[in-house]
Design a protein around this nucleic acid. Structure first.
Length: 430
RNA sequence: GUGGGUAUAGCUUAGUUGGUUAAAGCGCCAGUUUGUGGCACUGGAGACCGUCGGUUCGAAUCCGACUAUCCACCCCA
C-alpha cells in the first residue's frame, strides 16, 4: 500500500463512528475537573527540548530514547511533548500564574509523543487527561488529587481499577534507600537477570518489580522503602492515607511502585487493571515538590496525575461499559424534483435553527434511495416534499418507527408543529 | 532496541495434495413499471492474494528476504 494512504506507525485515527466515545469521556473529565475547581490550560504540542530533559529528567528512558526531537531553521532544538506536566509547569512560571493565588489548579487534555515500539495500550501518539496542583505540601492535596481521579472513573462507570499508592520519599531519604538497595542487591549480582543488573545502577527500585522468579524471590528480603523515608515523608504519607480513609477511597500500599519520571517525590500512585494487557496503568501520578524549582522557579511543592485516554477506552470496552450513542437525525426531508429539493433544503435549514438535527438529500438520489438513507441514519421522522406538497402547502411528518403520519403546514408554523410532534416522540421514550 | 504470532475485497472469512477468468457472507451503489424506509429479490462496483525474489510447464498455495501489523520484554499513560 502506498505511504499516502498509510498512517504512521503507532498512530491511531478516531473514526466518525467512534468519536462520540471520546467526546463522552472528555466531557466527564471536563466536568469533574470543574467540580474540583481545576481550570483548563492549553499548552503547545512542542517545547524547547531542554524543558523536558531538565523537567522529566536526563536519565529517564523517556528523555534518553523516546523523544521526537528536531531542529528548527533557526537551529533551536524542539521536542514534541512526551508528557503534559512539564509544559504546564513552564506556563505556570512564564506567566507567573502563582501570583493569582495558591494553590493553582489546572487541568489539561494533551496529545503526547514517544518513540516506543507500539503494543496493546501503547502508542507513539497518545492522549492524556491530567490535573496539576501547584503550591501546596499538604497531604490533603494528595488525597484530593487521587480523589479527583477516582471520581472520574466512578462517573465513567469503571469499578474494576485498583488504586495503589506508595511513597518514594524526598531526594534526601530516597538517596539513602537507593544506597541500601544497591548494597543489598550487589551481593546477588550474579543471580539477577540482565535487565536487573542494568537497573542496579540506574534505578534499583525497579528490581523490586521484576517479573523474573529469581529476582522477585531475592526482592522479598530487600530493604523496604517505608523503613528508609525520613520522618517528614513518613508523616506526610500517613496523612495522605488518613485523608483517603476519611473519603472512603480504597487503596493498597504497594512499595514497588516507582514512577519512571525523575520529578516525582513522596506520594506516587497508579490506577491499575489487568484486563487490558501488559500496559495496565490507566492513570499515574504523584507529587513533584522539586520540579518548579528545577525549572527555575521558587520552591513550590506540587503534584498531579495523567490518565491515558486510549487505555481508558480500551478498558471500558473490555468491561462492556456502554457509552451513550449520539443523537440521531431528528428529521430527514426528502425532496422530489427540483422544486421539492429546494423546499427540503429550506425547511431543513429552518429546523436546524432550533437545535434539532435535520438532513436532506445532497446526492441527487431518487425517493426510494432517500428513504433508505433516512432509515440507515436512524432518522426519527421523515417528510417527502414534491409538487403536491408545495402546491397545497402541506406535508406529512412520518414517524419512522411506527409509520404514523401527521399532517403539517409548510409555512412559518412548520417548526412549531414539528417541535410538538418531536417532543411527544421523545416523551414516549426512545 | 530484543523476542514471538499474523498478512486473501471496506469488514469477517473460504480457498482442498501447487492446475484455467480467486469464492462467500456482511457492508456499499443501482434497480424491482418514474411519490415513501426496514423484509425479500435482481444486478453492479470493489482484491495487483502485503512487497520483492526464488523453485516449477504452472504459485494465493512451497522456499527466502523485506515490509506492515498484533502481542510480549523494556518503559510508561
Amino acid at each position: 500500500m502506498s505511504l499516502i494512504t498509510k498512517k504512521v506507525k503507532g498512530t491511531e485515527d478516531v473514526l466518525p463512528k467512534d468519536s462520540y466515545k471520546w467526546q463522552f469521556v472528555e466531557d466527564i473529565m471536563r466536568k469533574e475537573a470543574q467540580a474540583f475547581g481545576f481550570k483548563e490550560i492549553r499548552t503547545p504540542v512542542f517545547e524547547h527540548t531542554e524543558l523536558f530533559s531538565r523537567g522529566v529528567g536526563e536519565t529517564t528512558d523517556v528523555v534518553q530514547k523516546e523523544m521526537y526531537t528536531f531542529s528548527t531553521k533557526g537551529d533551536a532544538s524542539i521536542t514534541l511533548r512526551p508528557e503534559g506536566t512539564a509544559g504546564a509547569a513552564r506556563a505556570l512560571l512564564e506567566h507567573a500564574i502563582y501570583n493569582d493565588g495558591l494553590p493553582v489548579k489546572a487541568s489539561y487534555f494533551v496529545s503526547c509523543y514517544r518513540y516506543e515500539k507500539p503494543q496493546a495500550g501503547r502508542l507513539r501518539e497518545f492522549h492524556q487527561f491530567g490535573l496539576e496542583c501547584y503550591g501546596t505540601s499538604s497531604p490533603a492535596a494528595d488525597a484530593e488529587m487521587i480523589s479527583a481521579a477516582a471520581s472520574v472513573f466512578k462517573r465513567l462507570g469503571i469499578d474494576k481499577l485498583r488504586l495503589e499508592i506508595n511513597s518514594i520519599g524526598c531526594p534526601k531519604c530516597r538517596k539513602n534507600y537507593h544506597e541500601a538497595l544497591k548494597n543489598y542487591f550487589e551481593q546477588y549480582k550474579d543471580k539477577l537477570c540482565d535487565t536487573c543488573i542494568s537497573r542496579l545502577e540506574r534505578n534499583p527500585m525497579r528490581i523490586l518489580d521484576c517479573k523474573s522468579p529469581i529476582c522477585s524471590e531475592i526482592s522479598e528480603n530487600a530493604p523496604k522503602v517505608l523503613d528508609y523515608i525520613c520522618d517528614e515523608c513518613r508523616e506526610h504519607f500517613e496523612g495522605v492515607q488518613k485523608y483517603l480513609d476519611a473519603a472512603n477511597i480504597e487503596y493498597t500500599v504497594n512499595p514497588t511502585i516507582v514512577r519512571g519520571l525523575d520529578y516525582y517525590t513522596k506520594t506516587v500512585f497508579e490506577f491499575v487493571t489487568d484486563c487490558i494487557g501488559a500496559q495496565g496503568t490507566v492513570c499515574g501520578g504523584g507529587r513533584y515538590d522539586g520540579l518548579i524549582e528545577e525549572l527555575g522557579g521558587q520552591h513550590m511543592p506540587s503534584l498531579g496525575f495523567a490518565m491515558g485516554i486510549e487505555r481508558l477506552l480500551i478498558l471500558m470496552d473490555k468491561l462492556g461499559i456502554e457509552i451513550p450513542k449520539p443523537e440521531t437525525c431528528d428529521i430527514y426531508i426528502a425532496g422530489l424534483g427540483e422544486k421539492g429539493s429546494f423546499k427540503a433544503f429550506e425547511i431543513a435549514s429552518k429546523v436546524r435553527t432550533s437545535g434539532l438535527i435535520a438532513e436532506t438529500d445532497v446526492v441527487g438520489r431518487g425517493l426510494r434511495a432517500q428513504m433508505k438513507y433516512a432509515d440507515k441514519i436512524g432518522a426519527k421522522f421523515s417528510m417527502v416534499l414534491g409538487d403536491d406538497e408545495i402546491d397545497n402547502n402541506k406535508g406529512k411528518l412520518k414517524n419512522m418507527k411506527t409509520g404514523e403520519t401527521t399532517e403539517v403546514s409548510l409555512d412559518d408554523n412548520f417548526l412549531i408543529q414539528f417541535q410538538k410532534v418531536h417532543v411527544e416522540y421523545m416523551f414516549v421514550g426512545n
